[in-house]
Design a protein around this nucleic acid. Structure first.
Length: 501
RNA sequence: GCCCCCAUGGUCUAUCGGUUAGGACACCACUCUUUCAAGGUGGUAGGGCGGGUUCGACUCCCGCUGGGGGUACCA
């Protein structure tokens, strides 16, 4: 599997601590999801915090489910999040290749070593046999574990079976006594009895290594110093430690971070809404905002809620990682994102908003700038960013600033576009038509003069105008709104409003 | 079933034996106001239960309960 479309972004983070190496090792069986993104983020943050190296490795040993599109989707997600990698797809590195399916010879060598040292053995039990044994055990209410039937096959028999064309798996021979201790960075020591562990498969019948095997070989050979991964891997870790020991590899430090749950406290899944990171990009969340929110799931720094990337890097530390699973709260995400909408320069937001407006057909596609300058868009952003939570909301909200057909809110029309307000709209049309200095200040003057003349409060004039211009009772400040809409569109809308009365 | 992890308001969290248990989101009220927001002020709401240890437990220990994870030739 290779990547074609990815343009690597050079890391701007200097490696000052070469001993520190962290990695994110997703399996390309789907898009980058929220949980994976948080794991990637924590690894990235810790690597950057320590001045270490961040490695991206693709674990594509599930041949049936892995796809190139998924690889690309993961790289896209990582790139959007700004989690650049120092080694991995597109950038290479001294310990490559970084796709497991390109490292099969490495695993084969390690498997042979284990076979020779008596730590592993060939197993000829078929999947079907195992399955029926498992079912029988379950039916009797007993726990199934591999009985070790092939453990003591003599070499001659093994050779005979292989010569017959039977395809064995290779199992790791787990010690039947003693215990294996995982000294976890976030949980502290966790002890597992070895006799609770099955003789698990390390190489499948097709010669492809299983996760528990490949991950150890790669982490060891890639000199990974810290393995930060989800809590769901805790029970895999003793198996992996046993492999490290059998191969004589030094152990990395393990840290298991809490899982992210849905609102019902079940593992986050599709039915909880979007789980793909890129779906959040599409929905108009800011990379900074999303990363900020993700960082606070299972980690905290005092009372602080908002963090820049640099602050995250500076403050991130293992002791501050929580042990408890966190519920993904899209409402809080919205708040964090709305804060980032305010923190992000308008020019930057304008750049991100432009394609969304273009997609809606609200920009003039025949003109290179869509008929709206960057400055105009930045001004639009300034008027809307405190009223919306995402870029998509902002784009939708801004519709009436464009010369497109509006869906007028019936209730607003009924209340504010009436025979009584007709003179107001007409007065506005007259005054605006004569106005050559189209500024918010002048527009305010016109509104105030008209209100005085008609014996109304400013609001009495503004609300009908708002409905006429925006199509509803809701808009940013009337004067700034009218200014940004431009005289031509304002007059057009006012005249159209007269027809709605 | 067995193994493992976890336990502060609805949610994210602070606290690392002595606090009126702090902050944030959400919610409610008030305020500001040309609408809507944003902002400001105030408020509702929390240590699962039972035992210990201690002068003193949210904090340490044990049990229970509850939640989560694992138990694949998936990762």
């Amino acid at each position: 599997m290779t990547v074609t479309g990815y343009q690597p972004q050079p890391s701007t983070y200097a490696v000052t601590n070469p001993e520190v190496r962290l990695r994110f090792a997703p399996s390309p069986t789907g898009y980058l999801h929220v949980g994976g993104a948080r794991t990637a983020l924590f690894n990235w943050l810790y690597a950057r915090h320590l001045g270490g190296t961040f490695v991206l490795r693709i674990e594509d040993t599930d041949v049936a489910r892995s796809t190139e599109e998924s690889v690309q989707a993961i790289l896209d997600g990582m790139t959007w999040l700004g989690l650049n990698w120092d080694e991995g797809p597109g950038v290479g590195g001294p310990y490559g290749p970084y796709f497991q399916m390109q490292r099969l010879d490495t695993y084969e060598t390690a498997a042979k070593q284990l076979l020779n040292s008596g730590h592993a053995y060939h197993c000829f039990c078929s999947k079907e046999e195992l399955e029926s044994m498992r079912e029988a055990a379950t039916a009797k209410g007993e726990a199934f574990s591999y009985p070790g039937r092939c453990r003591n096959l003599v070499p001659d028999i093994v050779q005979k079976y292989i010569d017959e064309g039977r395809k064995p798996v290779i199992r790791f021979q787990v010690p039947t006594t003693g215990e294996t201790v995982l000294d976890d960075l976030v949980h502290g020591p966790i002890t597992f009895r070895n006799d609770q562990l099955d003789d698990f498969v390390i190489v499948k019948a097709d010669g492809v290594p299983t996760y528990n095997f490949a991950v150890v070989i790669d982490d060891a050979l890639m000199k990974i110093s810290h393995v930060l991964r989800g809590d769901d891997h805790v029970s895999n870790t003793p198996k992996q430690i046993l492999i490290y020991q059998a191969l004589g590899y030094a152990l990395p430090r393990f840290g298991h971070i809490p899982m992210i749950l849905g609102s019902d406290r079940a593992r986050l899944s599709k039915r909880h809404g979007a789980t793909s990171v890129m779906a959040y990009e599409e929905a108009g969340y800011l990379s900074d905002g999303f990363v900020n929110y993700l960082s606070r799931l299972g980690w905290g720094h005092g009372d602080q809620e908002l963090f820049t990337r640099q602050e995250l890097i500076d403050f991130f530390d293992i002791p501050a990682i929580n042990k408890t699973a966190a519920v993904f709260d899209s409402v809080k995400l919205d708040w964090v994102n709305s804060q980032w909408l305010k923190l992000t320069p308008a020019e930057e937001l304008a750049r991100l908003l432009r394609p969304r407006l273009l997609k809606r057909g609200w920009l003039d596609a025949s003109k290179p700038d869509g008929g709206k300058s960057d400055a105009w868009l930045a001004a639009l952003v300034d008027l809307t960013k405190e009223r919306t939570k995402t870029l998509e909301e902002m784009a939708d909200y801004a519709k009436f600033f464009f010369d497109v057909e509006l869906a007028y809110d019936a209730e607003s029309v009924q209340k504010f576009l009436t025979a009584e307000t007709r003179p107001i709209l007409e007065g506005l049309i007259d005054a605006f038509s004569a106005e050559t200095d189209w500024t918010a200040a002048r527009i305010e003057g016109i509104f105030k003069d008209l209100a005085t003349k008609m014996g109304l409060k400013a609001g009495g004039v503004i609300q009908p105008a708002r409905v006429a211009l925006a199509g509803s009772k809701v808009s940013p400040g009337m004067y700034e709104t009218a200014e940004l809409m431009g005289k031509e569109l304002v007059l057009k809308r006012l005249r159209h409003a007269l027809t709605l009365i």
